[in-house]
Amino acid sequence: MKPKRILMAKTGLDGHWRGPTIVARALRDAGFEVIMIGMATTAEIVAAAIDEDVDLVGLNIGGHIDVALRAVDAVQAAAPDMPIFAGGTIPPHACKQLEAKGLEVFPPGSMLTDIVDSANRLTGLSTAP
């Protein structure tokens, strides 16, 4: 079976790469193909999600939640069935806003196994709750 593909992007212009790199490695170790595009605008994220024909979009969020919400809206408009998950320094009020849009959210302190489980579920590799 072809490995499932995950796009990972940072919505902000803040280049702290520790978090997304750890997550990308865990996802690759779990058999996913990860396409990292780093700091990207909403337009770049949407274009990459389509061009790269990914099964899941992962957003690393370190800035204002409105910037991230705009990226989520744009991806969902362009690809209504595309699952999205998010991680980063996301305060509780912002987690709720993302969850309301159907995202699974992983703030600091999340376990990699939970993130991998989520990727499996969101790409249809597992049906476990």
Partner: peptide, 24 residues
């Protein structure tokens, strides 16, 4: 970070795309 680290003014397209991040 958006403006200073990149030496952009706020009217640069990269900053305009993330205007709510400015000043964070």
């Amino acid at each position: 970070r958006n403006t200073a680290d990149h030496c952009y003014n706020v009217d640069h397209p990269e900053v305009l795309a993330r205007r709510e991040d400015v000043g964070l």
